[in-house]
Structures are given as structure tokens and as C-alpha cells.
Simulated assay, not measured.
Amino acid sequence: MNGADVIDLAQESIWVLIKVAGPIMMIALIVGLFISLFQALTQIQEMTLTFVPKIIAIFLSLFFFLPFMGETLGTFMQHIAERIIGLV
């Protein structure tokens, strides 16, 4: 394995990380933005109001995106295993 292979593997790892974590993080960002807007408009500064809706949204999105995340990580692991045994 030379330097170019290591860079390709690192780049692919970063893309897998973005594909797996990106949808959940975007949902948390959007829900947090709406909660912040709601708090600014109503001047309600309750601390639990920021956490509870985000936690619920993240759990629901995890149930929705879990098959995609598993497939992406499984494909990446197969690719890594093939590189380890020398098929690619």
C-alpha cells in the first residue's frame, strides 16, 4: 500500500462519514433552528425546550435512516476487507 492508496482510503472514509452522519446532523440543525426561532419569537427561554424536540427528532430520524446507514457502512467494510485480503 503506497501513499496514494492511503489518501484514497482516507478520502473514502471521510465521504462515508459525511454520508452516514450528515442526514442526522442536518435534521438536528433544522429542528434546532426552528426551536431557536420559536424561542426568539415567543421569548420563552426554557432549557428543556431546546433539548427534548431535538432528541425526539434525532431518534425518529435514526429509525428512518438506519437501513441506509447500515448499508453504507456494510459496503465500506466490504471494500476495506477486500483491500486487506488483496482483491482490489
Rank of each mutant, 00 (worst) to 15 (best):
D8P: 05
V88N: 14
V6Q: 08
T50K: 14
A4V: 13
F63E: 00
V31E: 08
D8L: 14
W15V: 05
S61G: 03
G32Q: 05
G3A: 09
V20Q: 06
L41Y: 08
I58E: 03
G32P: 04
F65N: 03
A28L: 12
S61Q: 10
L73D: 06
I80D: 02
A40K: 11
F38C: 06
G3E: 11
A28N: 10
M26W: 05
W15E: 01
L66D: 00
A81P: 01
V16N: 02
G32I: 03
V88D: 12
I24A: 13
A21H: 02
I18T: 05
F68W: 07
E82P: 00
F68H: 03
T48N: 12
L41F: 11
F63V: 08
L66F: 09
E12M: 10
T48P: 01
I55L: 14
W15L: 08
L60D: 10
S36N: 02
A10V: 11
S36Y: 03
L41C: 08
D8V: 11
G32W: 03
K54I: 07
L37S: 04
A21R: 03
I24H: 03
L29E: 01
L87C: 01
F68E: 06
I18V: 12
A4W: 11
Q11P: 01
T72Q: 04
V20A: 11
V20C: 07
L33A: 11
M77N: 11
G74I: 01
S61L: 09
E82C: 05
Q78T: 13
A28S: 14
I24D: 03
E46G: 05
Q45L: 07
L87W: 09
L9Q: 10
T72L: 05
T50P: 02
V31L: 11
